[in-house]
C-alpha cells in the first residue's frame, strides 16, 4: 500500500517507515503539515499516517484541508494527547482510525493492514489449538470433551494467545493486550494467570515458556 507518514519527530518517522516497509508497504515520509498537503494532493496515497501535533498547520487542519480538496486517502491519526476528544474529533473530521502514542509497532502494522483490506475479514467464531477450543460466541472453553471454567482475565489471555498460535508473546505485550490500559500491575500478574491457565487446561502441555522471551501456545514443544 502506498503510504505517507506525516510525523515531525524524525526518529519516530524513521521507525514507522521502516516497520511499514518491512511489512511490504511503499512508504514516504514528510515532517510538517505544508509538505504533507503538497505531497498528498500531488500523489495518490492509499493511506496517510498523520500526527496531530505538527509545526505550522496541525494534523486536524491538514485532514480538514485534504478532505476539502477531495483527497480520499485513508487516514490514520496519531496523537500524543490520548484524550478521548482527540479521537472523537479526528474520526468526526473523516479519519479512518486512531492510535495513541506510544503505540506498539505491531499494532500500527496490524491497523494499516486492516485499513488496506477492502472489506473487514469475517471474525472467526471458534479458536482452536490441538484439542483446545474457545467458542467466541459464548466464551466456552473445551479441552477435548471436557468443559473448562475460566475467569474473565484467563479467558482474555487465552483468546490473545489462541488468535496467533505459535507466536511468542512477551510479558509486556500480554500485559498490554489483556489489561488494555497500560498500568502498573506487576508483570507477575501475567505469570500468575499463565500458571492458572496451565493448571486448568495443560495436560498435555499447550502453553509453552520461551526462555527470556515470553509465552506461546502451540501443539508441540519447540
Amino acid at each position: 500500500m502506498r503510504t505517507l507518514v506525516v510525523e515531525d519527530e524524525v526518529r519516530l518517522a524513521r521507525h514507522v517507515s521502516r516497520a511499514l516497509t518491512n511489512a511490504g508497504h511503499e512508504t514516504a515520509v514528510v515532517h510538517d503539515g505544508e509538505a504533507a498537503l503538497a505531497d498528498a494532493k500531488k500523489n495518490p496515497y492509499e493511506l496517510i499516517i498523520l500526527d496531530v501535533m505538527l509545526p505550522g498547520i496541525d494534523g486536524f487542519e491538514v485532514l480538514r484541508r485534504l478532505r476539502k480538496a477531495h483527497v480520499d486517502s485513508r487516514v490514520l491519526i496519531l496523537t500524543a494527547r490520548g484524550e478521548l476528544n482527540d479521537r472523537v474529533n479526528g474520526l468526526a473530521m473523516g479519519a479512518d482510525d486512531y492510535l495513541a502514542k506510544p503505540f506498539a509497532m505491531q499494532e500500527l502494522v496490524a491497523r494499516v493492514a486492516a485499513l488496506g483490506r477492502r472489506y473487514a475479514e469475517k471474525a472467526p467464531i471458534k479458536l482452536q489449538v490441538a484439542d483446545l477450543t474457545l467458542d467466541l460466541t459464548n466464551n466456552e472453553v473445551f479441552r477435548g470433551d471436557r468443559r473448562i471454567e475460566v475467569s474473565v482475565r484467563e479467558l482474555t489471555l487465552l483468546r490473545v494467545l489462541m488468535r496467533e498460535p505459535g507466536r511468542v508473546f512477551s510479558r509486556t505485550e500480554l500485559c498490554e493486550k489483556v489489561w488494555e490500559r497500560e498500568h502498573e500491575y506487576d508483570m507477575k500478574l501475567v505469570e500468575v494467570f499463565i500458571s492458572r491457565l496451565r493448571r486448568k487446561i495443560d495436560v498435555p502441555p499447550l502453553i509453552h515458556t520461551v526462555r527470556h522471551l515470553g509465552y506461546t501456545i502451540r501443539e508441540t514443544a519447540p
Binding site: M53, M105, T172
Partner: peptide
C-alpha cells in the same frame, strides 16, 4: 509522549530483529 513513542519503537525494532540474541531480546523486553 513523543520521546516515549520513539523509545518504544526503537526497542521493538531491536526485538523484532531476527539476528538479535535471546538475551538481548529479554533485556529489551
Amino acid at each position: 509522549k513523543t520521546p516515549i513513542a520513539v523509545l518504544r519503537a526503537g526497542i521493538e525494532e531491536i526485538m523484532s530483529d531476527s539476528e538479535c540474541s535471546l538475551r538481548t531480546q529479554a533485556a529489551a523486553d
